[in-house]
Simulated assay, not measured.
Amino acid sequence: MSSESPITAPPAGSPACPPVLLIWFNRPDLAIQILDRVRLARPTRLYIAVDGARDPEGHPRDVELTRRCKELAASVDWPCEVRTRFSGVNQGCGRGPSNAITWFFSQEDHGIILEDDCLPDPSFFPFCAELLARHADHEDVMHINGNNFAPENPETIYEGYSYGFARYAQAWGWASWARAWKHFDYEVSGIQEDSPEVFATAGLDRFRQQAHRERVLSTLGEHHHDVWDYQWQYCVLRRGGLCISPAVNLISNLGFGEDATHTKDPTCNVACASTGSMKFPLKQPPERRESPAINRLYADKMLGDASRYRKKAIKRWIRGILGIKKAAKS
């Protein structure tokens, strides 16, 4: 279900809304909903990127739909500097968003990124504003998640704090800094040579992160670079970065359906998840360290059930043992 929290303005006394980047393509009905939430936050600088239409023979509605998305830029009705990046060609859902984010961070040192299907709770904006400022100089913190998949037991997972730290960068509404994005490499140069030691996390989670490396390789090799968030996630993992995760789910992804590129199953258990409102002042965790419980929450939802990685790890271990024995006999 969609957001259940009341639609109210950010709390009084909250920091000014950071610059916001909106990434749109051909879903103006969703884009309008996202813009309405941004209107509540009233950023003074708003960036809007719209990708170009695809081949009209295969996608005859794209020209009209992208035109409607571009026209939304003129509906910004609060004091705000609006900057647009309207592509004349279709860059795809890999290059399009990543090029837009690079454009954004070439002009801002921090900010919020929302794609057209990521509906934020109003409290998402002051949450990001406060933590972008608080962790601006903490190089190890690279990403602020808005989505936490609405777990059933957040009090246990987050130990009563307003947020925690994990290794997984979730891209359904997020914030970051130019200092972190500068490490993004769309081609993931050097991934073939990366050894298991590239991952700082120990235990089962290490194997899941290795599996993510394999997924990135598979995606880049077989699916024509139709993603960008796999590469960003790998960048964060490779650098041992920390990702802030809110104890309240602040983003609902409305984009599940047949017209989506990747999220086609509307019955998926993370589709249109309920959101809540973050309470202020924030309860700060006492130190910056990854939480195994939050790691598990994100890894289970993003990379799949832990049991499959246990099986893979055991099989890899057995093959390694057998390989050593065979080598000893020869």
Rank of each mutant, 00 (worst) to 15 (best):
A53H: 00
S14A: 14
A299H: 12
A73V: 14
P266N: 01
R316P: 07
V141W: 04
R206N: 09
K329N: 03
V38K: 01
G92S: 06
K312E: 12
C80S: 12
E81L: 10
S162W: 03
C272T: 15
T219A: 14
H183D: 13
T261K: 15
E197R: 15
P15F: 08
G160F: 02
K312A: 08
N26C: 12
G96N: 00
H110C: 05
N253S: 10
E81W: 14
F86C: 08
E130Y: 02
P285S: 04
A327C: 13
C17W: 05
D116C: 08
N249C: 07
E71H: 15
P43L: 02
T44M: 12
R308C: 10
V63C: 13
R134A: 02
I7P: 06
G320A: 05
T66D: 07
P97F: 09
H135D: 06
I101R: 01
E81F: 02
W232R: 10
H183V: 12
A202Q: 13
Y168A: 10
P15G: 08
P10D: 05
H224W: 14
F149E: 04
P266Y: 06
L131I: 07
A74N: 14
T44C: 12
P122T: 11
D140Q: 14
P43D: 04
W103S: 05
D77H: 11
I23V: 11
P286S: 15
A9R: 13
H225M: 14
A31Y: 06
A74S: 13
A202H: 13
S3Q: 11
S14M: 10
D259G: 09
A100N: 02
A178R: 03
L35G: 06
R310K: 14
D185W: 01
G160R: 09
Q33S: 12
L114V: 07
G323V: 10
A328K: 13
Y298P: 01
I294A: 07
I191R: 04
G221D: 11
G304Y: 11
P281M: 09
V216Q: 03
Q209S: 05
S277I: 15
P122C: 01
Y161S: 08
D116Y: 00
E108V: 04
A273L: 14
V82K: 06
K329A: 08
E222T: 13
S106E: 11
A299E: 05
R27K: 13
C69V: 03
Q231S: 08
A49Y: 00
I32T: 07
A175V: 02
K326N: 14
M1G: 07
A200P: 07
A200Y: 08
T44N: 12
A293E: 07
E115R: 03
R206E: 11
W232K: 05
T263I: 15
T66K: 03
K311T: 10
W78H: 15
W181F: 14
C272M: 15
L35E: 03
W317M: 15
P286E: 13
A16V: 01
S176A: 15
R95Q: 06
I294L: 05
P266A: 08
Q210G: 06
N148S: 09
R208F: 02
